[in-house]
Computed example of a mutant assay.
Amino acid sequence: MELNTIKPAIGASKDRKRIGRGTGSGHGKTATKGHKGQKARSGGSIKFGFEGGQMPMHRRLPKRGFTPLTKKVYALVNLCQLEVFEAGSVVDAEALLKAGIVSDVCDGIKVLATGDVTRALTVKASKFSGAAREKITAAGGSIEEI
């Protein structure tokens, strides 16, 4: 067996359809394109989504974007910002608004672990990062999730 003598198995390959080569071929005259019309013409392809000049569906519908409708936006507070409060004080949304740390509560407050806390504080918030929990409790403070 030589490489130049290898052929595909019988029935494994087909001859290509030679269209427009006379009526005797079975694919002559209209060359398998039917009769007239845009699709029968040279270069006659219709773009995907084209609706014959009517305003297409993708332009009729409103834009929604990628923002999920159920997304919650939290006001972020770092631990270094909590140094303003005295030891033993309760830090909640009202206290943060009065201190000017947060301008708007949004859907809640999330405490992040940037910086250190040196005082024992009772922090009330919607969410805490794992490292923030550890730092607050290590300083002798307590956490309350609202």
Results as ranks from 00 to 15, higher is better:
Thr114Ile: 14
Gln38Glu: 05
Gln38Asn: 14
Ser42Lys: 15
Ala75Leu: 02
Thr114Lys: 14
Asp15Ile: 04
Ser45Tyr: 15
Gly20Ala: 04
Glu134Phe: 07
Gly34Asp: 06
Ser129Asn: 09
Leu69Trp: 14
Ala31Lys: 12
Leu112Met: 12
Ser129Lys: 04
Arg41His: 00
Leu79Val: 00
Leu79Met: 07
Glu51Arg: 07
Thr70Glu: 04
Val123Asp: 02
Ala12Arg: 07
Lys7Asn: 13
Gly140Arg: 13
Ile46Pro: 04
Ile143Trp: 09
Val105His: 02
Glu2Lys: 09
Gly24His: 05
His58Trp: 15
Ser45Met: 11
Phe128Asn: 00
Met57Ile: 09
Ser45Gly: 14
Met57Lys: 13
Ala120Asp: 05
Ala75Asn: 00
Asp104Thr: 08
Lys14Thr: 07
Leu96Val: 01
Asn4Ala: 11
Gly140Lys: 14
Asp104Ala: 01
Ser103Asn: 09
Lys47Ser: 07
Gly53Ser: 05
Cys80Ala: 10
Phe50Tyr: 15
Gly115Cys: 04
Ser89Phe: 03
Ala131Val: 03
Lys110Glu: 00
Val84Asn: 06
Glu94Thr: 12
Ile101Arg: 13
Leu112Lys: 10
Val105Ala: 02
Arg59Tyr: 11
Ile136Gly: 00
Val123Ala: 10
Thr5Ala: 13
Val102Met: 03
Gly44Thr: 01
Lys72Tyr: 10
Val73Met: 03
Asp116Thr: 12
Gln38Ala: 12
Cys80Gly: 11
Arg60Ala: 10
Lys39Thr: 12
Pro62Cys: 00
Ala31Gln: 09
Arg60Gln: 13
Pro68Val: 04
Gly22Cys: 10
Thr70Ile: 14
Gly34Arg: 03
Ser45Arg: 15
Gln38Ile: 08
Ser13Pro: 11
Phe85Gly: 02
Thr70Ser: 08
Glu134Pro: 09
Ser126Val: 03
Ser13Gln: 14
Pro8Cys: 05
Asp116Glu: 08
Lys135His: 12
